[in-house]
């Protein structure tokens, strides 16, 4: 092989190898830059006050950057969304994987893909014009922009993740498990309930966790329908504000290098770590199943 060709091969292979490791580099870079900006807050502000402070008043004097109400907001909306999407999503996954006739199955699967494809801001918009007014009249509250509205919309955003991963897990239960149950005279439902679901349980758990991860990180839709009031626990029919919505709503108004700017990056660090832990744990759960 001529020398220039060898050099070309060498350069190409080097590019391939560098790109292969790029994702590690990028994740590290994201964490580094969030931390670099977020750390600025703690020169003047104490970490416990940030994590456990009950007030988020970023522009009062002196400002307060307690993210507890934001954590509560995220938690409330997430729990509400999980309460809706986990039972529905798992049930739909079981139906699609085990019960639906094959044509309907393909149709439903495309439906789930369709739902996954709808942009968050479009779902937020639809939530504003349908769910929000409905909550206002149905519950007779002064505003429909509530934690409940956020939960409903986010439940739909978590659904594709939960349904498709749980469906995968159920689908990959070995056939002979089921055949064993049928051979013992079990009905299809008994087989699903007693054999298939337990066998697929770790996949279903991972599906739920990844769905929740999606909900925790969701930004636009939740910002559009929850009313964005940073107050402590009041209830599901009151406005709340989540961690993500706070960052999205306030970053535009901060001065670069101000405490407020640093504080929003500190929230970013918190969000990054939360989703990191959720994703790692979900992967471990999924991985254990394979062994």
């Amino acid at each position: 092989m001529p020398a220039w060709k060898k050099i070309r091969e060498f350069v190409a292979e080097a590019a391939v190898k560098a790109s292969g490791l790029a994702s590690i580099f990028i994740v590290a870079l994201i964490f580094y830059f969030l931390l670099r900006e977020g750390i600025g807050l703690f020169q003047a502000y104490r970490l416990p006050d940030f994590l456990a402070g009950k007030n988020w008043y970023p522009i009062s004097d002196p400002p307060e950057f307690g993210i507890l109400p934001l954590i509560f907001g995220t938690l409330l909306v997430t729990l509400g969304a999980a309460a809706i999407s986990v039972p529905l999503g798992v049930a739909a996954a079981i139906y699609i994987a085990e019960v639906a006739p094959s044509r309907l199955k393909e149709f439903l699967k495309s439906g789930v893909e369709l739902l996954a494809a709808i942009p968050s801001v479009v779902l937020g918009f639809i939530g504003m014009v349908t769910v929000v007014p409905w909550i206002k009249t149905a519950f007779g509250v002064p505003t429909g922009l509530t934690a409940l509205a956020g939960s409903v919309i986010l439940a739909f955003m978590a659904m594709p993740t939960i349904v498709s991963i749980a469906e995968d897990a159920i689908h990959s239960v070995p056939k002979n498990y089921k055949e064993g149950a049928y051979a013992l005279g079990a009905t299809k439902w008994q087989t699903i309930y007693r054999v298939v679901i337990p066998a697929a349980s770790s996949g279903i758990v991972a599906a739920v966790m990844l769905g929740i991860g999606r909900v925790v990180g969701e930004t636009m839709a939740v910002m559009m329908v929850t009313g964005n009031s940073a107050s402590m626990w009041r209830g599901i029919l009151f406005p709340v504000r989540t961690l993500t919505a706070t960052v999205a709503a306030e970053m535009g108004e901060t001065v670069q290098g101000s405490e407020h700017y640093f504080a929003l990056f500190a929230i970013g660090v918190a969000l990054f770590l939360m989703t990191f832990v959720i994703n790692m744990t979900a992967d471990m759960v999924l991985h254990r199943k394979r062994k």
Partner: peptide, 16 residues
């Protein structure tokens, strides 16, 4: 790393 990158909240990408 890829799994994590896929799970990073979209607003965090914005911050980054």
């Amino acid at each position: 790393a890829i799994i994590n990158l896929a799970g990073v909240p979209s607003v965090v990408f914005g911050l980054f």
